[in-house]
Design a protein around this nucleic acid. Structure first.
Lengths: 315, 315
DNA sequence: CTGAAAGCGCTTACAG
DNA sequence: CTGAAAGCGCTTACAG
């Protein structure tokens, strides 16, 4: 309504001011909803995150929120279960004609990706590898990172290994980490790896460690090294070992986690872990989304990021 | 467009089906944005949260998201700094003509609350006490809870006390807890309380504890009891005491936190803490919002909730 | 009961 | 350059 009146217009500045004042006194605000109807942009991006209390996710959401709001975009926030994946809420999301879609860690079906590309909706999937050409997915190179961990632990002199992952097909991420770890250990001549599985929580890390320790039958033998597919389980594993089995870490067992969440740096843990380049990944993700929303033609595909080991005191 | 055609209409079911199929094949979805323009409801509620990685907040957001989506409401998500408060983003929020406003822990000015009531926008403020009659605020009875803590610690035999709060006027919450704690200790005959302040992070809890311990001048004297205004600082305090000063807890010092976040239950901490009835508070908050959105006339005001001490192993 | 028109609050394309 | 009209995709109130 009020266009940016050029200074040399017919309307005096004082008049403009009076109108503006009146408008704001009456509480007038442009209706973004109505605007979007004609402009065909809502300036809203749907952010869909997996349901979790894990600080890993909340810090990602924080950062995304910051970046998007800098760019004048707003977030319509959805949550989904690990198992349900994204497809369930897809219909709801579509009704709001969001400008873009940012999916965190949730599974997306092929049909959905196709539909998105048909209606020309930019989609980014964060922390999960999607093969579709229609979406841009960013993920750490989990397999490579797990290989690093294998090298690291072997280099430290450990000779017995175990892996704590997530329950069957809860995510490909754990599978990739497992594959890389086992694969590299095999190359280095270690073919026996213990396994236990949880669901990414601290508690499940405790149980997994108990399983591992109980099945070893006595604490005899060389100290062994446990690689957990996230920090929360790693910390649970540490605590079970320390407080239930009297282990000293890293003397009796080494533990390495994944994610580099803040809690891992706490003095009670000093957890050696793998850090994903989250900030860089988010930068790339948001930049892609912005450009795509501005109409640039960009290809989808999957981009992998290299992780690095944060060496602290548990190995 | 497609009204719920009564079975006895003129249109045959097969025809309806054909139309529906065609519609979905063409990818038709009702445009919620356009609908809201005439229906005067967006089914969107703005959720504004204070910027923080604290699990306390992410678990609240999770629960709110669940409750609101059950009710068919969607979340437009905003973040704000502790210092900035809500007023900055208020204008943005208004543009989207949300049906309601749910503010988590952020400060809200009187002008804003007035404006909200003028435009008849339901507002709930969570975890902060607002005196305005125009908004409904829910908050734990922090002062009372802190009094409980004082009683509890004195009952356990402690005779020296300290309080770790948040830096000046970061929040009234810490002030209330401090007041209650000091007040009750005074009533019980203990007039000397040590103080240190942080900003609700683990790190700041460490520093606060160092300050406290250094100013005591040697570890001589009776074990003392520290009450921290949140769990994160409590855990930082514990770790500083244990790992830097060689304290054993609770032998040399007791620590009590606030919030009952998951991390406090970890075996490395077993933190005695104060639990707020979050679920109940969220229930009340959401119920209020729903009713208000349905046009019910409800008064605002502040409601306080009673907290309870979760007794674990640090006192 | 049905169907066409008016209107929600904006923007854009077009006529003056 | 300015101002009025048409249109975004719906819903609601109204005329037939």
């Amino acid at each position: 309504v009020f266009k940016a009146c050029g200074g040399d217009g017919v309307v005096r500045q004082s008049t403009i001011d009076r109108v503006m004042t009146a408008a704001s006194e009456l509480g007038y605000r442009p209706n973004a909803i109505a605007r979007s109807l004609t402009s065909r942009r809502t300036n809203i991006v749907a952010v869909v995150s997996v349901k979790s209390n894990h600080t890993f996710y909340s810090s990602i959401l924080n950062k995304i929120s910051e970046k998007l709001s800098m760019a004048g975009k707003h977030i319509l926030f959805f949550q989904t279960d690990f198992e349900a994946g994204f497809d369930d809420i897809f219909q709801q999301v579509l009704q709001y004609k969001v400008d873009a879609l940012l999916i965190i860690s949730a599974a997306v079906s092929v049909e959905v990706t196709k539909e998105c590309s048909r209606i020309n909706l930019p989609v980014v999937v964060f922390n999960r590898q999607i093969k579709s050409p229609n979406v841009f997915s960013l993920c750490s190179d989990n397999r490579e990172a797990a290989r690093f961990v294998a090298d690291y632990l072997v280099g430290k002199g450990y000779r017995t290994f175990a892996y704590i992952g997530s329950a069957k097909r809860l995510s490909d991420i754990s599978t990739d980490r497992q594959t890389g770890f086992v694969e590299r250990l095999g190359e280095l001549g270690f073919h026996e790896v213990g396994f236990a599985f949880g669901n990414y929580t601290y508690e499940s890390g405790c149980s997994a460690m108990r399983e591992l320790l109980d099945s070893r039958g006595g604490s005899g033998g060389s100290p062994f090294a446990v690689f957990a597919s996230n920090d929360l389980m790693a910390m649970g594993a540490m605590d079970a070992a320390r407080y239930e089995y009297g282990f000293s870490i890293p003397r009796d067992a080494a533990v390495v986690g994944f994610d580099a969440i803040e809690e891992g740096a706490w003095k009670a843990y000093s957890l050696t872990t793998v850090e994903q380049p989250i900030d860089e990944m988010l930068d790339v993700a948001c930049t892609y989304l912005m450009k795509k929303m501005d109409g640039e033609e960009l290809n989808g595909g999957a981009k992998l990021f290299r992780c690095k080991i944060i060496e602290r005191a548990t190995a």
